[in-house]
């Protein structure tokens, strides 16, 4: 009974992550305001990082004592090590997500800087207005 609820909750988490990703895609592509685009983008990055962490997740099985997987002995026996490995989650996705978060930080800071410069140049952060200005320039340029 308990495990069924757990599986249903797991599925709900995955489904909500997918919905989150699709809403963020909509936000980045169709909202003209650059700040709204940026907020959608950060949520998109976080949802995908969350999904990657979820891959390393391990469902609690009955019979495992609920305590954090920490090795307390300096010289563990093979039995203790086996128990540790049964409880521990996969650490690699967390390392990947750490890398991805740092890269995302660089991209977001760059985008914020460029949005600031856009506001200084055009006096607006609305991409539709800027696109209208650009169309005039492009038509003038081409023969």
């Amino acid at each position: 009974m308990g495990s069924e609820i757990q599986i249903a909750m797991y599925m709900t988490v995955i489904l909500s992550l997918y919905i989150n990703i699709s809403i963020c895609m909509y936000g980045v592509i169709s909202k003209p305001n650059l700040i709204k685009k940026l907020i959608s983008l950060t949520i998109l990055q976080d949802s995908i990082n969350m999904f990657l962490i979820l891959i390393g997740y391990r469902l609690w099985r009955p019979g495992i004592v609920l305590q954090p997987p920490v090795l307390l002995d300096w010289s563990p026996t093979s039995e203790v090590l086996k128990q540790f490995l049964e409880r521990a989650v996969d650490p690699l996705p967390q390392a990947l997500v750490l890398t991805a978060i740092v890269i995302g930080l660089a991209v977001n800071i760059f985008l914020i800087t460029v949005i600031l410069h856009t506001y200084r140049h055009f006096g607006t952060v609305d991409m539709d207005e800027i696109g209208r200005l650009k169309r005039v320039v492009i038509v003038e340029e081409t023969a």
Partner: peptide
């Protein structure tokens, strides 16, 4: 227009 080009490249590139 350099800033505009960069922003339209960077947003979709980041996605």
């Amino acid at each position: 227009w350099a800033i505009e080009a960069s922003i339209s490249y960077a947003f979709i590139g980041a996605i």
